[in-house]
């Protein structure tokens, strides 16, 4: 099957299994290789739309996507918002920020209120693990987890896989290091599941205090030194480091962390020519990644951002546009040529 943007526009987009994601996208957990590949393949069609002069199709016209963010975010919210608009969905935004709602009071009420605006899909971010799962049980709308505490961030993993696949064809056999604060990283948890499901080998690298307490059952190896690994990596994935890890007694200083685990210019120079450098953003230059590494030709950080929109279009389309809905408008396209 080869999906094209034109198919998406006129509603005949052929999706092998429109229900591949089920009702919600709460995590990578539970998705197998075939499901991940189907989403990535569909993403190609939406990436093509993004390259057009007018990157917009009516696929989700009349549908409403609500971003419900209980935690500050600029990038992820913009990415989902852009994806929804390119599919002609209406968007509404709820931001709890630092209001009392972020303390959890009336969480269910909030969701019911958002639902009453007619949202068909909620994009939820929350600082505590599992909140998107809970919300999915309280609403008729589809729910996409846009990051729940230290748990999962599935669309980030999908866009990372898409980026790796775009550059290398497939993830099979790749050796990928995920470096830094794995313990607190939802990006790491989702990527461990996604990378390994697609055939890559994952090594988690960081100080012992920043590893999850028990990773015995995870399909990964753990290393506490980065230097011995550099030459053998196909990709190095750097996680954002938070300053509060010092006051929590997890590391002695940012300087020591940067010295031991940061992708410095010297370490970048030791990476293979075909190695890829990834980061979920926003970066802390000079901490987990040097300015040189970020600007290195092997860095695909900006590709990740661009691919994020395409992947999220695919996810929104799968959850709202195919099978679920009054769905895709079959009337002729307007102002769009392919």
């Amino acid at each position: 099957m080869s999906a094209t943007a034109a198919d998406a526009v006129d509603g005949t987009l052929e999706v092998a299994d429109p229900g591949v994601l089920g009702r919600h996208l709460l995590g990578i957990e539970g998705l197998d290789r075939a499901a991940l590949e189907e989403v990535l393949e569909l993403t190609d069609a939406f990436a093509e739309i993004g390259r057009r002069p007018i990157p917009k199709v009516p696929a989700l016209r009349g549908r409403t996507v609500a971003t419900v963010f209980f935690e500050d975010s600029t990038r992820t919210r913009m990415s989902f918002d852009t994806a929804a608009r390119r599919l002609s969905a209406d968007t509404v935004a709820f931001a709890a920020g630092s209001s009392s709602l972020s303390k959890g009071e009336g969480l269910r009420d909030t969701i019911e209120v958002v639902g009453s605006y007619g949202a068909d899909l909620l994009v939820v971010r929350h600082p505590m693990a599992g909140t998107a799962h809970r919300i999915a049980g309280w609403t008729d709308a589809a729910v996409v987890n846009a990051g729940d505490g230290c748990h999962e961030h599935p669309t980030q993993a999908l866009l990372d896989c898409y980026t790796l696949r775009e550059k290398r064809g497939a993830l099979d056999g790749m050796r990928i290091a995920i470096v830094g604060d794995v313990r607190h990283s939802r990006v790491a948890r989702s990527n461990v599941l996604a990378f390994t499901a697609l055939g890559a080998e994952v090594v988690l690298v960081g100080p012992a205090t920043l590893m999850p307490p028990a990773v015995g059952g995870w399909p990964v190896t753990v290393a506490h030194e980065l230097d011995p690994l550099l030459e053998e990596l196909d990709a190095v994935y750097l996680l954002r480091m938070q300053r509060e890890r010092i006051t929590e007694g997890l590391i002695p200083s940012i300087r020591e962390f940067a010295t031991d685990f940061g992708l410095t210019a010297a370490r970048t120079a030791r990476l293979r020519d075909d190695a890829l450098i990834l980061h979920p953003g926003p970066t802390n230059p000079g901490v987990e990644i040097s300015a040189e590494a970020a600007a290195d030709p092997r860095s695909v950080i900006l590709d990740q951002v661009a691919n994020g929109v395409s992947v999220r279009m695919a996810v929104l389309f799968l959850l709202l546009g195919s099978g679920r809905a009054p769905a895709v408008d079959a009337e002729p396209t307007r102002g769009v040529t392919s």
Partner: peptide, 15 residues
């Protein structure tokens, strides 16, 4: 409880 389940679920645990 801190252990395999807390690690997997992303809920901070207590040992």
């Amino acid at each position: 409880h801190e252990g395999e389940w807390s690690s997997r679920l992303g809920i901070p645990g207590q040992p």
